[in-house]
């Protein structure tokens, strides 16, 4: 069973994604802030990280950079940025920070599931 780390501070969104992913048969690990996310990413070794960009403590991009820094030569986990920042350049910034993909909020479940399926 694939393990997905969902980094998300908004409860409703978290619940939406958790429910959707678990219903679809994934194991979901949750991080409510950036610091936890870095720790969990290292400890839980997820198969995919869904990263919110706007977090209470750290910026999602910063978190991504740290995770990538910790990986240092080891296995590279795919990180997909999930954000409502739909401004030009956000995608580029995310990719530059080390993300593998970019999903814009609000998410359409059907579309969303088919997109993450590609990274697993």
């Amino acid at each position: 069973m694939k393990k997905i780390l969902v980094v998300e501070d908004n409860e409703q969104n978290l619940y939406l994604m958790q429910y959707m992913l678990e219903t679809s048969g994934y194991t979901v690990v949750v991080a409510l802030n950036g610091t936890d996310a870095v720790v969990l990413a290292a400890r839980e070794k997820p198969d995919l990280i869904l990263m919110d960009i706007q977090l209470p403590d750290l910026d999602g991009l910063e978190v991504t950079s740290r995770i990538r820094a910790l990986e240092a030569g080891g296995k590279v986990v795919p990180i997909v940025a999930v954000t409502s920042f739909a401004m030009t350049g956000d995608r580029e910034k995310a990719l530059a920070a080390g993300c593998n993909g970019y999903i814009e909020k609000p998410i359409d479940p059907e579309n969303f599931l088919s997109q993450i399926g590609r990274y697993l």
């Binding site: 908004n10 409703q12 969104n13 939406l16 994604m17 429910y19 959707m20 219903t23 409502s84 739909a86 909020k105 609000p106 998410i107 359409d108 479940p109 059907e110």
Partner: peptide, 14 residues
């Protein structure tokens, strides 16, 4: 504005 829509669109989708 998008965050609530996230829930609305997401849950309606589910």
């Amino acid at each position: 504005l998008r965050t609530p829509l996230n829930s609305i669109i997401g849950f309606t989708g589910i």
